[in-house]
């Protein structure tokens, strides 16, 4: 019963997120709204970590597994990607380094300001 209730809480929040997205026609996906709803519930104490401990642990520990079918979908995109692999890898590499450097230095610059 305990696990079923935990699943119920999490799936219920998912549903609430989807519902809000459709009702208010928000540009934010329902599952991301669900994340915000859960965070608000945790912060306000409406839901405690213990109430969802096992199921959230299970999902977080195996997170990558749930992305597998989405990743396998790349088979259908092989035509579109033909001859583009190197460019895609290049964009991924360059921008990842760039994001890391900009983010890191923005924070270091702000931390220096705070310490002064």
């Amino acid at each position: 019963m305990k696990l079923l209730r935990q699943v119920g809480i999490i799936v219920g929040i998912c549903l609430l997120g989807e519902l809000l997205q459709r009702l208010l026609k928000l540009p934010i996906p329902g599952n991301v709204l669900g994340m915000v709803i859960l965070l608000s519930c945790l912060c306000s104490g409406l839901i405690t970590l213990e109430m969802i401990a096992e199921v959230s642990g299970f999902l977080l520990d195996h997170l990558a597994f749930f992305f597998i079918p989405a990743g396998v979908g790349i088979i259908a995109c092989m035509g579109l990607l033909r001859g583009k692999w190197l460019a895609v890898l290049g964009v991924c590499f360059i921008t990842t380094v760039l994001i890391m450097v900009v983010t890191g230095h923005t924070i270091q610059w702000m931390q220096r300001g705070r310490k002064r």
Partner: peptide, 23 residues
């Protein structure tokens, strides 16, 4: 695969937990 993909929704919602733990 679609059954596994169903869990993408709950898997996103649950990302609130690591944020809350580092509040």
């Amino acid at each position: 695969g679609d059954i596994i993909s169903f869990f993408l929704g709950p898997a996103t919602v649950i990302l609130a937990v690591p944020i809350y733990k580092q509040l």
